[in-house]
């Protein structure tokens, strides 16, 4: 058997080699000084990793495992991006109302009497009502000259 690489030694150490090869490799490592040295190095490296990574541990292992909070399944979450189309639509409608041309008359400028009259006639066109119901009386003299014209209601 030829000498093993550092990677093969590592795999041998971690028992990640096919079982049929393990015995042959083990024999070789025992006999070969170079491979034996590599193996000892790999063992030391593993211990070093344990030491270094172990130093990054905290003392939080004593903290108990918290209870798992069951999620509410099949409940639709309202996320911000889902609300965006509605916000845009509302903004567009708002802008249209803000800049529209046919604004309703401002009641503040209409005299109070007109408002009352408007309400009294139930919104009907007063001008038209006047034309429909009025009569014109024309007073003439003998010669046919108009003396006076009276419009009645």
């Amino acid at each position: 058997m030829k000498c093993l690489s550092r990677i093969e030694i590592q795999e041998f150490l971690d028992k990640e080699i096919e079982p049929s090869l393990m015995a042959r490799m083990s024999d070789h490592i025992e006999k070969c000084e170079n491979c034996s040295m590599l193996f000892r190095q790999a063992v030391a490296d593993k211990a070093l990793i344990g030491k270094v990574i172990g130093m990054s541990d905290t003392t939080e292992d004593s903290i108990p495992v918290p209870e798992f909070v069951l999620p509410v399944l099949n409940k639709k979450r309202i996320t911000f991006y889902k609300v965006i189309p509605y916000l845009v639509a509302a903004s567009v409608i708002g802008i249209i109302f803000l800049f529209r041309s046919d604004k309703t008359p401002v009641l503040e400028n209409i005299p109070e009497a007109e408002i009352l009259l408007y309400e009294f006639y139930d919104g009907k066109d007063l001008n038209r009502m006047w034309h429909e119901k009025s009569q014109i009386i024309i007073l003439q003299d003998e010669k046919g000259n108009v003396i006076q014209s009276i419009i009645t209601n």
Partner: peptide, 17 residues
């Protein structure tokens, strides 16, 4: 490639140390 990646990482760690 796990073995290769692992050995490289070990070598890099040792070098840094």
């Amino acid at each position: 490639s796990v073995g290769t990646t692992l050995v490289r990482a070990i070598e890099r760690l040792k070098e840094t140390l």
